[in-house]
Design a protein around this nucleic acid. Structure first.
Lengths: 248, 248
DNA sequence: CGGCGGCAATAACATGTGATAACGCGTGAA
DNA sequence: TTCACGCGTTATCACATGTTATTGCCGCCG
């Protein structure tokens, strides 16, 4: 962990992700890498990194592990509004709002960089390509959020779950977390239900159906997509909204 | 329309909205106002200002009228992902993504300013308070989008419709478009259905229920909220996510 | 070892919401 | 005037999804 080589590797997902959005300058990469290494933090599984109402004064960049953003209604109903994957920033710029309007919880142990607001702002000011990449990422997150609205609003359960799986698969690819047609999937059916707006029972039914159709395998926190094209068809999935190709 | 006085008034909602997010400098206001007046445009009701797949090369700022952002699935299912109200910018920065991943349609005749990307970028560079206000607005839009995810995913029909009405009411207030407890509401039940992820028929049922509970009146494109507190209670509505108070 | 808790899987049953269809009403065009 | 059309309203019926409950598995820990 404290050897330079390993630390260099740690920042890889972030750099790959940002560079895929906007080509980063050598200098930008170096600056980012240093800022990351100076802010290294860890969190265990099932921790809340932030809660609704908390003041925001830093940006978090996820190096490894999964998290989710969620909101809870007074009576306990919970909705996951997005998954945060390795390489993602926890909204480069929510700090503009000064108070969290949602919570962020970990689904696995997590390694992340906590970059204080002034440091982050200096970073953006110092390198234009970094600034643009981070804004780009923010915009892509908005696009994803819109697609979730569509997903939950207009797709039926089967399509809905399939769509979510497609999206995650597609997002994990550029950061190199797909192994063949499999990937880690540390999401319980409870989480899946909270993310899709369904009940746990119905998520279970739906997964059974996807399995029966020989589209996926999901066991021991590992997802295997046996028929990607088929899954995408069911989901009415197109990856356009992820803006994977370099934008702008 | 072409008298300076009237033109000054035109920009009022935008200035009020942005200034509410981040105090604008005198200079920023002047610059913004000029840019707006130089880009004045109109659109009729039921027009699409942009479609999925279109290239993006300008920012639109809405001076009067209502629009909605929406996506359509291959088989025609439609989901409205947000309403765009007077004073809103059509995402100050989607242009970072270069291609629209959704469409934008008008619900009423609309007056807006079309500001070309280079002009807009010069504007942001010229005045810090403007830049911050626009970024703030973008972040608030993200927050709204998250709340919509919660709304559609976890609230039942009655709460859902009530919540949407509360939100719109709350958003119209700072731009001065609320008259007593009434406001214009140029949204058909079809639109309402597409925004809430419900069927038209069920939206109708739900509105009847809200009327029967003496919470609202909705007739002739005019919404009157007779019991705001009651409506908010039903909707489990809290305005925090709108970040109305000056942020940052 | 035994008990406990988190998670997946199923069954039986309840209901919210969707689908379809029909009707009324107002407006605008021919 | 008459017709067409968009929108709201209502009724009936079907079904997707929610609710509640039970069971089993497995890892954890005293």
């Amino acid at each position: 962990m404290h050897s330079p080589a390993l630390e260099g590797n740690l920042a890889q997902p972030v750099i790959r992700r940002l560079d895929a959005l906007r080509q980063l300058s050598e200098r930008g990469i170096a600056l980012l890498q240093r800022a990351i290494l100076e802010g290294l933090q860890r969190a265990g599984q099932g921790e809340d990194l932030a809660n609704e109402g908390d003041p925001v004064d830093s940006v978090r960049i996820i190096l490894s592990g999964w998290l989710c953003r969620f909101k809870t209604l007074e009576d306990g109903r919970r909705q996951i509004t997005s998954f945060i994957l390795p390489g993602d920033a926890c909204d480069a710029c929510v700090y503009l709002l000064s108070v969290m309007d949602h919570s962020i919880g970990t689904l696995t142990p997590v390694i992340y960089a906590d970059i204080k607001r002034p440091v982050f702002e200096r970073l953006l000011a110092a390198d234009q390509s970094l600034a643009q990449a981070f804004w780009c990422e923010t915009m892509v997150n908005s696009a994803i959020q819109r697609e979730w609205t569509v997903n939950i609003g207009r797709r039926i359960a089967l399509e809905r779950v399939a769509h979510l799986l497609c999206e995650i698969h597609e997002r994990l690819r550029p950061v190199g977390m797909i192994d063949g047609d499999s990937c880690a999937f540390p999401v319980t059916q409870i989480d899946l239900a909270d993310a899709t707006g369904l009940s746990v029972v119905h998520v279970n039914r739906t997964l059974q159906e996807l399995r029966a159709s020989r589209l996926i395998t999901l066991r021991d926190r590992t997802l295997t997509i046996m028929d990607l094209r088929g899954l995408q068809n069911i989901a009415l999935f197109t990856a356009d909204y992820l803006h994977t190709k370099r934008c702008g």
